[in-house]
Each structure stands twice: as structure tokens, then as C-alpha cells.
Design a protein around this nucleic acid. Structure first.
Ligand code: MN
Ligand code: MN
Length: 301
DNA sequence: GCTTAAC
DNA sequence: GTTAAGCAACGCAAA
DNA sequence: TTTGCG
């Protein structure tokens, strides 16, 4: 089924007790979806959620490389506030399988590639609904963000997170730096919140979020990460983050696609919802940045 | 799951 | 030899 | 400066 180069220890260890899914099952899942997943993951610095004893036991976050990682997990030095640290990244299916061997159940990525870490090539607007927000309001929020990008002549894409929300994703040529990108995203998120303050908030503080959707623009800050398309989640039911077509958004649930049912979806789906995301070469030009202000004020009034 | 420090 | 701890002491914004 | 957050 997959490459013989991987040595998978304890293949029968159960990582998702509620579904009876084993380490081998997860490896087979990644081998199956690798071709779809890799374009969005390769060469991006990673942040990993590891659960070597299964998702119900103690899991931990890991953003720095450790000694003695399998060779398919590459290492790149990246400057931090206080020091320079080693970050991991992968470039092929062997890398995904090596992550599985290390007990990784969630793969989060930077919005930039290792060859140019100072210039993001992917924006993500993370819509985080408070538990009592009805799902149709979340999908409506995603379409509102897409509409704003359409007004700038930019294409946007959407994926489920495997949790409770959605990610609206916008590929860009890596031109602007993190400070400019973050300011743009903050402007957009705060604009949405000002447009419909009863429904959206742009501030992280939990208390301000009750009954609303947090438009989390801070995924677009240097060093921040977001769940990768097709990554498994360390949650009940083994959900996976899944790209969807805008047309099917109302028919899906944020945690509806799983390790067990995603291969069936892949086999029956006519096309790849993220095919264009990987190909498009869009620029966030100065005129588009200015156009955002105009689009927001025209909607507000 | 693997490294490193401590018994 | 065996056991135990660390692995988001990162970066940001709000209070 | 501390705390909360992802
Ligand atoms: Mn989210
Ligand atoms: Mn979030």
C-alpha cells in the first residue's frame, strides 16, 4: 500500500479508542491522501500535536525539532525573539509517514515556506464560533469573508477544521512581510466585526465572544500556525480538516469528515476543491490593500 | 516516541 | 539498567 | 507586567 521505507513501530497501538483506529490505520490514511495534501504542506515550518500513547492519554505540542528525528522530517533554523531555533518540515509522503511514526495526530503549518519565511504565501481567516452559534451563521461568515476578497478581485477557498469552525484560505505570492500582512488581516477582521457586531468579534478574549463568531486573524502572524488541509485532529471521532467547494458548504459539518470516511469522499468527488489554491498566483497589491478600506466603508454605510 | 538527566 | 521529565519559557493582544 | 489564547 505505501512505501517500504517506513518502519512503523507498534502498528497495532490504538490511537483513537472511540473508533478503534490504530497507528497503522493513520499511516494508511496519510498514504492515501498524500497526493492531495502535500501541495499545501510541503516546505512549511510545522507545529505538531503528538499523542504517542493515543489521543486520550497525554498529548503535547511540539514546535521545535528534537534530536534523532527520522530523516524524512527535515529541519530548518528560524530566528525567534530570543534565539534561533530548529523547526521541522516535510517534503514528501515519507515525511508524513515519519510524522505518524512519531505519534503526530495534528499537523499545523506556517503561512510561509522555508525558502522565504519572512513572506507569507497563504492567508487564513479562522472562524471560531462560540458553542451556541448555529452552523448556518458560520457558513454565512465564511461567505462574507470570501465576498470581501472578491471585491478585491482575489479568490478565496474554504475548508472545515475538524473542530467547530471553518478556515477561509487565500493564496498569495510571497511579497509582503508579516507586519503588513497582519495589519491587512486585522483591518479585515475588525471591519467584519464593525459591520455586524452582534455576530462577529475580532478580539481573542473569551469573555467578549459569547454567542458570536471570533474572526481569528492572528493565524496570520509570524510564528503562528493553522491546521493543515487533510490533517487528522486529536479529537473524538478522528475528524480531519477538509477542503470543500463553496457550493457544498451548507451540506457539511465542521467535524463531519473523518479518517474513516474521507477516502470514500476522495474517490467519489469530481474534483479537488483546493486544486486552484495551489495554482493561483495572486498579489496583495497596494491598490488592493486600499480597496479593502473602501469595500468596508461602502458596506458599513 | 525519543532524548536527556537523575537514580 | 531503569525511571522521569520535557516536548507552545512561541508570539500576540487584552487586561 | 501578567494573563489568556491558539
Ligand atoms: Mn479555529
Ligand atoms: Mn482560532
Amino acid at each position: 500500500q505505501f512505501r517500504a521505507t517506513l518502519r512503523l513501530s507498534h502498528p497495532d497501538k490504538v490511537l483513537y479508542p472511540d473508533r478503534g483506529l490504530t497507528k497503522r490505520d493513520i499511516a494508511e490514511y496519510y498514504a492515501r491522501i498524500a497526493e492531495r495534501m502535500l501541495p499545501h504542506v510541503v516546505e512549511r515550518p510545522l507545529m505538531l500535536v503528538r499523542c504517542p500513547e493515543g489521543r486520550r492519554k497525554s498529548c503535547f505540542y511540539q514546535k521545535h525539532a528534537q534530536r534523532g528525528l527520522p530523516e524524512p522530517i527535515r529541519v530548518v533554523p528560524i530566528r525567534e525573539e530570543a534565539k534561533t531555533a530548529s523547526y521541522t518540515y516535510v517534503e514528501n509522503v515519507e515525511g508524513l509517514l515519519a510524522l505518524t511514526q512519531m505519534g503526530v495526530l495534528e499537523i499545523h503549518t506556517w503561512g510561509a515556506r522555508v525558502g522565504d519565511v519572512e513572506h507569507p504565501d497563504l492567508l487564513v481567516f479562522d472562524l471560531d464560533p462560540d458553542p451556541e452559534v448555529p452552523w448556518p451563521e458560520v457558513t454565512e461568515g465564511a461567505r462574507l469573508v470570501r465576498d470581501l476578497f472578491h471585491r478585491l478581485d482575489l479568490e478565496a477557498f474554504v475548508k472545515t477544521t475538524g473542530g467547530k469552525g471553518l478556515h477561509v484560505c487565500v493564496p498569495l505570492r510571497p511579497r509582503l512581510g508579516w507586519d503588513e500582512i497582519k495589519l491587512f488581516c486585522k483591518t479585515l477582521a475588525e471591519g467584519v466585526a464593525r459591520l455586524l457586531p452582534a455576530r462577529y468579534v475580532a478580539t481573542m478574549a473569551k469573555a467578549k465572544r459569547r454567542g458570536k463568531i471570533f474572526v481569528d486573524y492572528l493565524r496570520n502572524a509570524r510564528g503562528a500556525t493553522f491546521i493543515a488541509p487533510y490533517s487528522t485532529r486529536a479529537r473524538p471521532g478522528a475528524p480531519v480538516a477538509t477542503p470543500v467547494f463553496w457550493e457544498e458548504l451548507d451540506a457539511v459539518r465542521p467535524d463531519g469528515f473523518t479518517v474513516e470516511n474521507l477516502p470514500r469522499r476522495l474517490a467519489t468527488l469530481r474534483a479537488d476543491p483546493f486544486a486552484e489554491l495551489a495554482k493561483l498566483r495572486q498579489n496583495l497589491t497596494e491598490s488592493r490593500v486600499r480597496a479593502l478600506e473602501r469595500a468596508l466603508s461602502s458596506l458599513t454605510r
